[in-house]
Design a protein around this nucleic acid. Structure first.
Lengths: 215, 215
DNA sequence: TAGATTGTTAATCGATTAACAATC
DNA sequence: TAGATTGTTAATCGATTAACAATC
């Protein structure tokens, strides 16, 4: 049973397929061809078929894909049928904003606690989620079966806190700190570097401006 | 003066180079070879040299790269020497969190105003930045020379608001809404789809789990 | 000068697109 | 059955890596 490694390029596109299928579902569209989906999503039909066939044949010749079935299957591939308990480290603006989001829960990611070094925040709750002291973390992780953490602290302390999290058994880190983390191979990190995203916007904006000047 | 188009893969890496060079600078490191940088960043030296040479020869044979010079030049390429005035549409949790960030200002992106349909928010300020009514937007954009907008509103209204922004002359949109925007060619959109990022984390976490089960 | 390291060309690798036989 | 559309192989394109001459 040889398993081919799926490229990150494909993984990056999967959630977008999932989103579009969810929208089709909301609009009561039962089936869709790769060609029709390709038009809506602005990718080639060939790519859609190639991407999906990495995971199996979900369609049917002459018919296309059943929207509901495909949506469910991609959900499974993404692991959205598993439940995860999360904690947020850093109860500042961003940490609290993420805690207030309910959409993560809807796809199986439940935020159980926030942690912060600021004693003023200790004891308050955000959408019913308690803010705890850092020294309460290890026990909390064990008691609430936490397997993922969201890191929304300044970069200065991010690396040391990540090491701590790994020691406490955390397997996945959603990293919003402006630094790269160095974790063991079996711990997964997904980075959200906002200022890098803003810089890409800046670059592309500048390119557009230049185009117009040349004309 | 033929200009070759730079691939988005390269653009995506540029801010990361910029960040590492900034850190070197903080640590008073004056020069660095592609080989040394490659070890720190976990990319190949060849890729670093190829990426940089898309924009010019910033190094010197036998010496390497001058950290301060290269940092400045990449900053210029990314357009960080230009100043931009921004508004945030949607003064909810995320909008306010972004308004509270000061790091964007340090790279030239100044947030001048927030806008929200919720009348309760109208009149308050976030870090001194006023929250305005939506009908004040058009004038505000003109008066404060706003050229970029941050979209932190629910997906339901995002597309219509984006159209509005384009009409008012906005050229760059940093889109945090869970939907793709459809804007003219000369308007640049940079998407931050948080739940898609979380789904990628979920997928990669699941893969790790499976690996361990197989062993 | 000798050693180091870039800039750049060539080789390889991987991802995307095209094409079409299989089949519903 | 005829038409539609997938699954999959082959062709193309682009991005990454390797190699090395140029040169500081």
């Amino acid at each position: 049973m040889e398993k081919k490694e799926i490229s990150q390029a494909v993984i990056t596109r999967l959630p977008r397929y999932y989103r579009y299928l969810g929208e089709l579902l909301e609009n009561s569209i039962e089936r869709i061809s790769s060609n029709e989906l390709s038009k809506r999503m602005q990718v080639t039909a060939s790519q859609i078929r190639q991407d999906l066939n990495n995971f199996g044949g979900f369609g049917q010749q002459g018919y296309g894909y059943n929207v509901k079935y495909l949506h469910t299957e991609i959900g499974k591939i993404l692991g959205l049928d598993d439940k995860h308990n999360l904690i947020i480290i850093g109860a500042g603006n961003l940490g609290q904003a993420l805690a207030n989001y309910t959409s993560f829960e809807r796809i199986g990611f439940v935020i159980k606690g926030l942690f912060d070094i600021n004693p003023k925040l200790n004891g308050i709750t955000v959408r019913g989620i308690p803010v705890k002291r850092m020294d309460e973390m290890q026990n909390f992780i064990k008691e609430h079966s936490i397997d993922m953490a969201i890191l929304t602290i300044p970069k200065e302390r991010a690396i040391e806190v990540a090491t701590m999290l790994v020691d406490f058994g955390i397997k996945g880190i959603w990293n919003f700190a402006h630094t790269d983390l160095n974790v063991p191979d079996d711990v997964v990190v997904e980075n959200v570097h906002l200022s890098e995203s803003l810089m890409r916007l800046s670059y592309n904006l500048k390119q557009e401006e230049n185009k117009n000047n040349v004309k």
